[in-house]
């Protein structure tokens, strides 16, 4: 079936099988490999994308459901050619080790900071509570998001 949607600001019209998942379409058909698949069953958040602005899991979405939506992946949040301040804060605060969880973490933070300019550490923890990280122990991720929030003000 033919679907039309906006991906990182660009309109895409593609032909997909109904049973393909969004993560497969993004990574394989469209070549954007920033979005990661880990568990494939909703338990880790590494495949998070923004659908009409809110974080959703691309491993549990069907390609057909992209029709008419606006999608932002990790490739789509940079400003011009610079990294987004959240990404810079992640690097500066050592919030990235293997990096597999990072795209999802950055996208949920992006959504949080859009809704809440001054989140408390608890609010940050709540926002990233669906995203598992096996490396950092989360403290540095929370530090990075807190720092990014301050910088954005």
């Amino acid at each position: 079936m033919k679907i039309r949607f906006i991906l990182n600001g660009e309109t895409k019209v593609i032909d997909v099988e109904a049973d393909r998942r969004v993560i497969d379409v993004i990574r394989e058909d469209l070549g954007l490999t920033g979005t990661k698949e880990a568990c494939g069953r909703g338990e880790c958040g590494s495949c998070t994308i923004l659908v009409d602005g809110s974080p959703k899991l691309s491993c549990l979405m069907l390609a057909a459901q992209l029709e008419g939506r606006e999608i932002i992946t990790i490739e789509g949040i940079k400003k011009d050619s610079d990294m987004h301040p959240i990404q810079e804060a992640f690097i500066k605060h050592g919030a990235v080790q293997c990096g597999f969880c990072t795209p999802g973490m950055v996208l949920v933070s992006f959504d949080l900071l859009k809704r809440n300019k001054k989140p408390s550490r608890d609010e940050i923890r709540e926002a990233i509570s669906g995203n598992l990280c096996r490396c950092t122990g989360y403290q540095k991720i929370v530090d990075a998001i807190e720092a990014a929030a301050k910088r954005e003000l």
Binding site: G42, G45, T48, S54, P55, K56, L57, L60, M61, V108, E126, A127, S129, G130, N131
Partner: peptide
């Protein structure tokens, strides 16, 4: 229930 992205869906 679950976590924020799952509650969005």
């Amino acid at each position: 229930v679950a976590a924020p992205p799952l509650r969005n869906m």
